[in-house]
Amino acid sequence: MIRYTFERLCYMVVTFFVIVTLTFLSMQLLPGTPYRNAAKMTKEQIAVLNETYGLNQPVPIQFVKYITNMFHGNLGYSFQYDGRSVTQILSEKFPISIELGIEAIIIGVVIGLLLGIIAGIKRNTIWDYTSMIIAVLGISIPSFIFAALLQYWFAVKYQIFPVAYWDGPINRILPAFSLSTIVIATVGRFMRTEMVEVLQSDYITTAEAKGLTTMQVIFKHSIRNALIPVITILGPLFVNIITGSLVIEKIFAIPGIGEQFVTSIYTNDYPMIMGTTIIYSSMFIFIVFIVDVLYGVIDPRIRLAGGK
């Protein structure tokens, strides 16, 4: 298990560097300059600005500088907000997106697993069909439509929840729920398929032949085995949720990172783009790492194959 974890850790570091390097290089290909009034500026003015921000240096030197700074926790200064450091902006907005994402994932996983397990056990009954209709709706209707509908019903018509903003726990419910629909749908459908497959396997018959009750068979033998493949999709799903919360953040006026990211791309705010990418990708890589380790914990075959 230790060697397995260590191997995963090494992959993680390598992947991270590849992503950072590629983002840095592809940013050099972006057209335009980061300066708002570049069209009205003289060549000299631009040269002065480039000098100030270090953009006149050769690319490899810029890269090395950037990496060294990164190790000191300095991701540079934003071009759009004068004088504010990228780390400062990220640390302000990022936790909000993360929190929303985590809430959505928790809601989604709990409801999704429940739907999937029920549908799997009560296969080809009204329970199954209802659960799967919910799941298909969740996949095919974009989350911002749910967001708008929820907002209209629960905030405007019945006024149970606030329409927008990020003030208290009650503000979280609508955005987290609308964001979780895709999770409910994906997890639900996946879990159903896995449950159906597991319930037809021979070891379930063995368990039944031991005289265990249906509940014991389901909880002790089925769910754990059905969860293994579901866990692999959770990591990417989580990252998806956080990066995909842009529209939801806009609808509910939530000051998260999603909107910030898009703005920084069309203003050529290099340090912001780099900073956000680094955060996103390290999160992604970290989650994949966690999933790999979890996979090993749940499935002994994987743990031992890598760890002997």
Partner: peptide, 20 residues
């Protein structure tokens, strides 16, 4: 089941729960 009458299955490769 399992107490008075029990059963041995055909395929030992799949008859055991892999995660237990």
């Amino acid at each position: 089941r399992g107490k008075d009458i029990s059963m041995i299955f055909q395929d030992p490769m799949t008859a055991l729960n892999p995660t237990m």
